Lab assay of single mutants.
Amino acid sequence: ETQAGIKEEIRRQEFLLNSLHRDLQGGIKDLSKEERLWEVQRILTALKRKLR
């Protein structure tokens, strides 16, 4: 995994995270989306740690 590859994956995950946040802010309670949001946040945290 290169730095560029990790950064690209971070961009993808952040896009997905923002999309999930928008969907959930629409007021629709969706447990699967909430679980996915937490999963994406965990992935992002792990990726950012790899960059250090």
Score class of each variant (00 low, 15 high):
Glu1Ile: 09
Glu1Gln: 09
Glu1Thr: 09
Glu1Lys: 05
Thr2Lys: 06
Thr2Asn: 09
Thr2Asp: 10
Thr2Cys: 08
Thr2Pro: 05
Gln3Ser: 09
Gln3Ile: 15
Gln3Leu: 15
Gln3Lys: 10
Gln3His: 11
Ala4Leu: 08
Ala4Asp: 10
Ala4Ser: 08
Ala4Lys: 10
Ala4Arg: 09
Gly5Glu: 15
Gly5His: 14
Gly5Pro: 03
Gly5Tyr: 14
Ile6Gln: 01
Ile6Glu: 01
Ile6Ala: 01
Ile6Thr: 02
Ile6Cys: 03
Ile6Trp: 12
Lys7Tyr: 08
Lys7Ile: 14
Lys7Ala: 12
Lys7Phe: 06
Lys7Trp: 12
Lys7Asn: 05
Glu8Leu: 10
Glu8Pro: 00
Glu8His: 04
Glu8Asp: 11
Glu8Arg: 10
Glu8Trp: 06
Glu8Tyr: 06
Glu9Val: 05
Glu9Arg: 04
Glu9Gly: 01
Ile10Asn: 01
Ile10Gln: 01
Arg11Gln: 06
Arg11Thr: 06
Arg11Ile: 08
Arg11Ser: 05
Arg12Asn: 07
Arg12Met: 07
Arg12Tyr: 09
Arg12Phe: 05
Arg12Cys: 07
Arg12Glu: 04
Gln13Ile: 15
Gln13Lys: 05
Gln13Leu: 15
Gln13Asn: 10
Glu14Asp: 01
Glu14Leu: 11
Glu14Trp: 07
Phe15Glu: 14
Phe15Thr: 12
Phe15Met: 14
Leu16Glu: 06
Leu16Gln: 03
Leu16Pro: 01
Leu16Phe: 05
Leu16Cys: 09
Leu16Asn: 02
Leu17Cys: 04
Leu17Thr: 00
Leu17Ser: 02
Asn18Asp: 13
Asn18Cys: 14
Asn18Trp: 11
Asn18Ile: 14
Asn18Val: 13
Asn18Pro: 00
Asn18Arg: 12
Ser19Cys: 12
Ser19Gln: 14
Leu20Tyr: 02
Leu20Ile: 07
Leu20Trp: 01
Leu20Gln: 00
Leu20Ser: 00
Leu20Gly: 00
Leu20Asp: 00
Leu20Glu: 00
Leu20Pro: 01
His21Lys: 15
His21Ile: 15
His21Arg: 14
His21Ala: 11
Arg22Leu: 10
Arg22Asp: 07
Arg22Asn: 10
Arg22Lys: 15
Arg22Val: 08
Arg22Tyr: 06
Asp23Thr: 04
Leu24His: 03
Leu24Ile: 07
Leu24Cys: 04
Leu24Ala: 04
Leu24Arg: 02
Leu24Ser: 03
Gln25Met: 12
Gln25Ile: 09
Gln25Val: 14
Gln25Asn: 07
Gln25Thr: 11
Gln25His: 12
Gly26Cys: 12
Gly26Leu: 12
Gly26Gln: 08
Gly26Thr: 09
Gly27Phe: 05
Gly27Thr: 08
Gly27Cys: 08
Ile28Asn: 09
Ile28Leu: 11
Ile28Gln: 09
Ile28Cys: 07
Ile28Ser: 10
Ile28Arg: 05
Ile28Glu: 10
Lys29Trp: 15
Lys29Asp: 08
Lys29Glu: 07
Lys29Phe: 15
Asp30Pro: 02
Asp30Tyr: 02
Asp30Phe: 02
Asp30Arg: 01
Asp30Met: 02
Leu31His: 13
Leu31Ala: 14
Leu31Cys: 09
Leu31Trp: 06
Ser32Ile: 14
Ser32Val: 13
Ser32Lys: 12
Ser32Glu: 15
Ser32Asn: 13
Lys33Glu: 02
Lys33Asn: 05
Glu34His: 09
Glu34Asn: 07
Glu35Leu: 11
Glu35Thr: 06
Glu35Phe: 11
Arg36Gly: 03
Arg36Trp: 04
Arg36Tyr: 05
Arg36Val: 07
Arg36Glu: 08
Arg36Phe: 06
Leu37Asn: 01
Leu37Ala: 05
Leu37Trp: 05
Leu37Cys: 09
Leu37Gln: 02
Leu37Val: 09
Leu37Met: 14
Trp38Asp: 13
Trp38Gln: 13
Trp38Gly: 09
Glu39Val: 05
Glu39Pro: 00
Glu39Trp: 07
Glu39Lys: 06
Glu39Tyr: 03
Val40Leu: 08
Val40Ala: 07
Val40Asn: 02
Val40Ile: 12
Val40Trp: 02
Val40Phe: 04
Val40Tyr: 02
Gln41Ala: 07
Gln41His: 12
Gln41Gly: 03
Gln41Pro: 00
Arg42Gln: 13
Arg42Asn: 08
Ile43Phe: 09
Ile43Gln: 08
Ile43Asn: 10
Ile43Cys: 04
Ile43Arg: 08
Ile43Met: 08
Leu44Tyr: 01
Leu44Ser: 00
Leu44Glu: 00
Leu44Ile: 12
Leu44Met: 02
Leu44Pro: 00
Leu44Val: 04
Thr45Cys: 07
Thr45Pro: 00
Thr45Val: 11
Thr45Asp: 13
Thr45Ala: 13
Ala46Leu: 10
Ala46Phe: 09
Ala46Ser: 05
Ala46Gln: 09
Ala46Tyr: 08
Ala46Glu: 14
Leu47Met: 09
Leu47Gly: 00
Leu47Phe: 03
Leu47Ala: 00
Lys48Pro: 00
Lys48Phe: 07
Lys48Ile: 13
Lys48Val: 05
Lys48Thr: 03
Lys48Cys: 07
Lys48Asn: 05
Lys48Leu: 11
Arg49Gln: 14
Arg49Ala: 14
Arg49Cys: 09
Arg49Tyr: 06
Arg49Gly: 04
Lys50Glu: 12
Lys50Phe: 04
Lys50Cys: 13
Lys50Gln: 13
Lys50Asp: 04
Lys50Trp: 04
Lys50Val: 08
Lys50Ala: 13
Leu51Arg: 00
Leu51Asn: 01
Leu51Gln: 01
Leu51Phe: 03
Arg52Lys: 12
Arg52Asn: 13
Arg52Val: 14
